[in-house]
């Protein structure tokens, strides 16, 4: 809803006021969220270009944005970028889906039955602080240097945020709404699909977005050490070949893809949770 309104405002403004655009476009343009976002990014790249272009930083330590763009273009043309990107995306997808299944199921069960959560939560809370990086040695021992190791590390990174969000959501359900559903004669499936799930989504979905972000970071970490393809591997490989432009190009790709994933999920959230107080204004 919010996104639609925004898009509507963007197209409506120039239509209505062609002469006004000439008079005072700046303050109105600056009020637009995506214009601000664009300006912020532009300023960042300008600063980067200035630092490298003026020779303040050695080009070998940090290539200029143009050099990085050139490297990206070259890798896109020869296809290697897409191969690595696809490998990483596939790994994060599998690991994230596993994490969703386990995190959601465990979160629902623990949120619903307090006695179960008394058993499970101490285990979760003790495992949660171990960073995925610390899991790498034992992961390689268990799964070797294949895709399975990456799936497992993504899973480890994403499962805890998914669990915590689901648990918190179910825990915080409005007692009166559940009672209302029960006195209206709700069957168990109706209580689950029509009440529990939609009521929990405003908390679960942002949790899943964070989980995907963590998973994306984990896949790169895994590929740095335990893989033969993927963006992490690309960075590591390029470092060993002293192709600093490709290293930064890989980093930029990771950043942009992560940004895009988060933006897409946020759009979905806004649509699904349009009714929720957190998504209004």
């Amino acid at each position: 809803m919010g996104a639609n309104a925004e898009a509507g405002a963007m197209t409506a403004v120039p239509d209505r006021s062609v002469p006004a655009t000439r008079k005072m476009p700046w303050s109105r343009l600056l009020a637009d969220k995506s214009v601000r976002a664009g300006l912020g990014l532009a300023a960042f790249f300008a600063f980067w270009q200035a630092v490298t272009g003026l020779g303040l930083v050695d080009g070998f330590l940090l290539p200029s944005p143009f050099a990085v763009a050139q490297a990206l273009w070259d890798m896109a043309v020869d296809g290697s970028l897409w191969i690595h990107l696809a490998a990483s995306l596939q790994r994060v997808a599998v690991g994230f889906l596993l994490a969703c299944v386990v995190g959601l199921a465990l979160g629902l069960v623990c949120g619903w039955w307090r006695s179960v959560s008394d058993f499970v939560r101490p285990v979760v809370e003790a495992l949660r602080p171990i960073p995925p990086l610390a899991w790498i040695p034992i992961t390689i021992l268990w799964f070797g240097l294949g895709d399975a190791a990456s799936y497992f590390l993504v899973f480890l990174g994403a499962v805890f945020p998914a669990f915590v969000a689901t648990y918190t959501a179910v825990r915080g359900l409005d007692r009166n709404q559940m009672n209302a559903a029960l006195c209206l004669g709700a069957k168990p499936w109706q209580l689950f699909w029509d009440v529990l799930i939609p009521a929990s989504l405003p908390i679960i979905l942002p949790g899943l977005r964070i989980a995907l972000g963590v998973g994306w970071m984990c896949v790169v970490t895994a590929e740095l050490i335990a893989a033969q393809t993927g963006l992490g591997y690309l960075i590591q490989q390029s470092r060993m070949l002293f192709q600093i432009n490709n290293v930064v190009a890989g980093m930029v790709t990771i950043g942009l893809v992560g940004f895009a994933m988060s933006a897409i999920l946020e759009r979905i959230e806004r649509r699904v949770n349009a009714w929720a107080p957190s998504e209004r204004n």
Binding site: D174, N176, Q177, N179, A180, A181, D194, V195, P198, A199, L201, W275, A276
Partner: peptide, 8 residues
């Protein structure tokens, strides 16, 4: 507090 289902 009405307890209406806000998503419906």
């Amino acid at each position: 507090d009405y307890a209406l289902f806000g998503w419906m």
